[in-house]
């Protein structure tokens, strides 16, 4: 198969980038999208060009590293897969394929198709955890968890943190990412203890980082490779409102020894 590729090239965060056109030929329909890009890069290296930089690692759809915006959709035209699981048979021979990086203020471009997603790490650091230390925890079966709750928590926890939700959103909002983490932990008794504090901290951090707001278009759900549902955003809203309206005011407690 042959393709014309229009790829965003940008040397680093400080300079301007542009779309550059490349041709690739003789691609097997069984090649993955990245193997097609590998072929292009091999050609560029051999001819003294500069290979295209893109993020990728596990190439089996779970690490969440890959992040290409292909023909107007994060992770390309096939629903429920990451870029690394996309195969060239999903494209027509001779097609022109536009490849861009995720676009968001909170995800600055590092080079070519690579963006900096450490904003997601910061959001998790703001509260996406249960505050327990190693050791001193009760036996795993001490607290039964209803199977349905546990399954719903797992549905939310399946998020791979790739950022496709932000890329797809017309407002570059990160609500699905945060909604998924808030839901995962709020649904479990272990996470309920800090639920009120967690959601407020994570939302505050999200705002600080410059993500957009949700207008409930559900583009995030449509393009999420793991099919995370927007009902998680509703749950986050509920948790947030409940926390704002009903949680106790935090007091500073001084412990003198």
């Amino acid at each position: 198969m042959n393709f014309t590729l229009k790829i965003w090239r940008q040397k680093n965060v400080a300079v301007k980038g542009e779309m550059i056109s490349y041709d690739v030929s003789g691609i097997s329909p069984d090649s993955s999208f990245f193997e097609m890009l590998d072929t292009l890069n091999q050609k560029l290296i051999m001819t003294g060009g500069d290979p295209v930089a893109f993020d990728h690692d596990c190439r089996e759809g779970i690490c969440g590293t890959c992040s290409l915006y292909i023909n107007g959709r994060p992770h390309g035209p096939v629903k429920g897969v990451t870029t690394c699981q996309l195969h060239m048979r999903s494209f027509a021979d001779g097609e022109t394929i536009h490849i861009e990086p995720w676009r968001a203020k909170a995800f600055p471009v590092i080079r070519d198709l690579i963006v900096d997603r450490s904003a997601f790490d910061k959001i998790i650091q703001a509260g996406g955890y249960v505050s327990v230390n190693t050791g001193g925890v009760p036996d795993a079966n001490t607290i039964p968890v209803p199977k349905e709750k546990s399954e719903a928590a797992m549905d939310a926890a399946a998020c791979i943190g790739c950022g496709a939700c932000v890329a797809a959103c017309s407002n570059a909002a990160a609500m699905l990412f945060i909604g998924a983490k808030v839901s995962h932990l709020a649904l479990l008794p272990q996470g309920r203890v800090e639920a009120a504090k967690r959601v407020q901290k994570m939302v505050a951090c999200m705002d600080e980082l410059g993500f957009g707001n949700c207008s409930n278009t559900s583009a995030c759900e449509a393009d999420c490779p793991k099919g995370i549902s927007v009902s998680n955003i509703a749950r986050m809203n509920r948790e947030f409102l409940g926390a704002k309206l009903f949680s106790e005011k935090e007091k500073v407690v001084r412990v003198s020894l």
Binding site: V137, K147, S150, H184, L188, G191
Partner: peptide, 16 residues
Amino acid sequence: DLCVAQGVPFAREYGG
């Protein structure tokens, strides 16, 4: 024990 306390959603039976 630790992973459950952290909120790892292990598979469960109907009894929880």
